[in-house]
Amino acid sequence: MQQAEPEIIFDDKIEQEIKIEPKDWMPEKYRQTLIRQISQHAHSEIVGMLPEGNWITRAPSLRRKAILLAKVQDEAGHGLYLYSAAETLGIGREEMYDQLHTGKAKYSSIFNYPTLTWADIGAIGWLVDGAAIMNQVPLCRASYGPYARAMVRICKEESFHQRQGFEILLTLGKGSKEQRDMAQDAINRWWWPSIMMFGPPDDSSPHTIQNTKWKIKRFTNDELRQRFVDICAEQVKVLGLELPDNDLKWNEERGHYDFGEINWDEFWEVVKGNGPCNKERLETRQKAWDNGAWVREAASAFAEKRNGL
């Protein structure tokens, strides 16, 4: 069958690595896939502010307080870049928020775990931001222009996030016994959820093939996960701490670390909304939104009034 003209142009651009821009024709499914992925990513940044924001007021030094505040504020900025990128595809921010609040849109499950101690701030930076970077760097070359450009800005800031987390753990690792235990406990709790951040294994990942063809995705979930495990297995030695996996072992033949079985049942439970903090996170977002309604109304009433002058 003959392809319609705009579709040929689109395919050709994808083929030649020319970015698709908002005004270009694109298949409806491409647009929908991007809206879903970008808004989900934006929501993750915003919901992701909560577990760490929880420790800003309790950060144990002024330097840490400033760093954490700057970090969480960066995540808000990332949310902003991504919402703007999604808006270029024809969806409004209010609608995206609505999808978040009603549970229609997802966000990264990792943020449904609680931050119990200060060491969790270290573990999140090192592992969660680390995994996010691994996922995000290839997205800087995603075929949709506004998304790729947002990711470039985001990735620039992410390496600082991972460094500050690693540094927190490094300090704790060199500290008192209580501090070392705190750090190890945080790693024990965050390790498995972090490697689940790469998504289900390739043989049960429904979107991978089409997204790879469209050059939204460049590597498979399992490829990125392996790369992450390999890096962390080395870095944890510098910390003088351990990853909670007895099967973690260097495999000379593969040139990679082997690692233990992931508990995908837990993953799907959290995705379905049964994680430790799903309810709390959504309620917090909803509350912030509702409590702010009068501010937004006032701002638009004011704009109308004064612009009329």
Binding site: I46, M49, L50, G53, I56, T57, L62, K65, A66, L69, A70, V72, Q73, A76, G77, G79, L80, Y83, T284, K287, A288, W289, N291, G292, A293, V295, R296, A299
Partner: peptide
């Protein structure tokens, strides 16, 4: 800084966090 993540408008959440950072 207690507001961080709870503001009424994302842009203003960022603005207030910025002010908090300056003051720290």
């Amino acid at each position: 800084s207690e507001w961080c993540g709870h503001g009424p408008i994302l842009e203003q959440d960022i603005a207030l966090a910025n002010i908090a950072l300056d003051l720290v």
